[in-house]
Design a protein around this nucleic acid. Structure first.
Length: 274
DNA sequence: ATGGTAGCACGGCTA
């Protein structure tokens, strides 16, 4: 089973790029981020006429996530638990029944966190975007802990807005003070990983030069000045089935592309010995 | 140091 994540940066502007990729890559399940659309105005036919089921969690103008699946989507849940006052649409979960049992799919769009606002003691300023990012990550940590406690196959994937290591940026020094790479952000990501998740891409590919985002400005893609911030995380029961993981970087060279490209993982439909 | 590009939606925010 092929499962993918793609920050499409606006569903209405990406009808061509998204459908070209769907038709070529044929994922069984995909999560989308930055649909920048309400549920009511989402062009569902783009997805449904290709045989996918679709669940959206949108908002007007910004953010917004979705899950599409060739298999039925069950037990859909919208919103990351832990803060009833959080109105930003950044989290959606659903269950798909695979050949080897249920798989919980959690699609996320983690807050960017810039600009970084710190007080004199270096504490993120309450109410600021960086504090919101770190608070959201604390809630994510709690949700991941619950998923792991269930001891079932789950995939947590999306745009994490986290550069895990220096090798995940072409120019790491230019990101040192950025919310995507600051020590507090990376530490929060490590805390989540160390609960017991496997990062699918790094389980398959070592070394620098592999990116999932290139800025639209300054010919970043042509210069391969990118960062790797879209990730696929697996619980042990899912990691046991991991066959492959890769980044569809060529999508960035297409017509009217998103600034992100898809990342996908192939999971065996049986408990794998690989 | 600033501005460079893009989406949504048509003004200004977000990235």
């Amino acid at each position: 089973m092929k499962i993918a994540t793609f920050n499409i940066n606006g569903i209405k502007a990406r009808a061509g790029a998204l459908t070209r990729w769907l038709d070529e890559a044929q994922p069984d399940v995909a999560v989308l981020q930055e649909i920048k659309s309400t549920d009511e105005t989402f062009p569902r036919e783009l997805i449904e006429e290709r045989g996918y089921n679709l669940e959206t969690h949108g908002q007007k103008g910004f953010n917004g996530v979705a899950i599409l699946s060739k298999l039925p989507l069950e037990d859909v849940s919208r919103g990351l638990p832990g803060d009833n006052d959080d109105t930003q649409a950044r989290w959606i979960e659903a269950t798909v029944s695979t050949g080897s049992g249920a798989l919980r799919v959690c699609g996320l769009y983690l807050p960017n966190g810039n600009p970084v606002e710190l007080d004199a003691a270096g504490t993120p300023v309450a109410g600021g975007k960086y504090a919101y990012k770190l608070g959201w990550m604390a809630r994510l940590e709690a949700r991941v802990a619950a998923l792991l406690a269930a001891e079932e196959a789950a995939v947590i994937l999306g745009d994490f807005n986290i550069i895990p290591q220096a090798e995940d940026a072409a120019k790491p020094d230019s990101w040192r003070e950025d919310a995507l790479f600051r020590p507090e952000s990376r530490a929060a990501f490590r805390r989540i990983m160390h609960l017991g998740l496997t990062e699918a891409f790094r389980a398959r590919t070592r070394g620098p030069g592999h990116y999932s985002f290139w800025d639209y400005q300054a010919r970043a893609f042509e210069n391969n000045n990118g960062i790797r911030i879209d990730h696929i995380l697996l619980t042990p029961q899912a990691a046991d089935r991991l066959l492959d993981c890769a980044i569809d970087a060529e999508v960035r060279a297409g017509e009217k592309p998103s600034d992100h490209v898809p990342v996908w993982a192939e999971l065996a439909d049986y408990p794998s010995a690989a």
